[in-house]
């Protein structure tokens, strides 16, 4: 079983065991794949104005298509209720946001190659962001839309009683939530 993250003289430390690490790394991979599939839509046509090709900026006439998968939409939400403003923000920032998320997920994957994690504050914050992105996607798959849904999922804690794939996913969600909560406690402690 995972051990809670703590802040101490060596930095922020925590332990995740082999089966847990394997599972979470697979989830990181799934997210990287989802994000990279979206990133492929960002590629500009080859015959584009060289200025755009050089800067990687998208011309105003080339808004990105809406995101169909609600879990991916949760990772890359609209920045405004105003559709025009949201599309503009997406056109200007989405590629960058994807690159940052993928970077943090890859870093987190590497960190999970060993049982014991020793992190400084910045690395711990990036690890927390990666874990939280996994939670957002699992929550969407588990259809957590209200506090009641959240309470329903939180009840699944005993691995020996898990029977359905949804219960298994709930168990994983609860494990990652617990790990993240202890990590936030350690970060708060490091901050003060």
């Amino acid at each position: 079983m995972a051990k809670a993250f703590k802040n101490g003289s060596k930095g922020i430390t925590g332990t995740l065991h082999s089966a847990e690490r394997k599972l979470i790394r697979e989830l990181f991979s799934d997210l990287i794949e989802m994000l990279e599939e979206r990133a492929r839509l960002h590629q500009l046509p080859e015959d584009i104005d060289p200025l755009y090709a050089l800067t990687g900026m998208r011309p105003e006439s080339m808004d990105l298509p809406p995101i169909a998968d609600p879990a991916l939409a949760r990772l890359l939400p609209d920045a405004s209720d105003d559709a025009v403003a949201a599309a503009e923000h997406r056109r200007l920032t989405e590629a960058d946001s994807i690159a940052q998320k993928v970077g943090r997920l890859r870093e987190a994957q590497l960190l999970l190659e060993t049982d014991r994690l020793v992190l400084d504050k910045d690395a711990a914050t990036r690890f927390a962001q990666a874990l939280n992105d996994v939670r957002l996607v699992l929550a969407e798959r588990l259809q957590i839309r209200s506090e009641e849904d959240s309470a329903r999922v939180a009840e699944v804690l005993d691995a020996s009683e898990v029977e359905t794939p949804e219960e298994y996913m709930s168990l994983v969600y609860n494990l990652i939530s617990w790990v993240l909560d202890t990590l936030m406690g350690a970060l708060m402690d490091a901050e003060s």
Binding site: A128, R135, R145, D149, G185, M188
Partner: peptide
């Protein structure tokens, strides 16, 4: 939202 942890949101605001 019903997903983000209170500890997490609070830390984001601080940091």
């Amino acid at each position: 939202d019903p997903v983000n942890l209170m500890s997490y949101v609070s830390y984001v605001f601080r940091s």
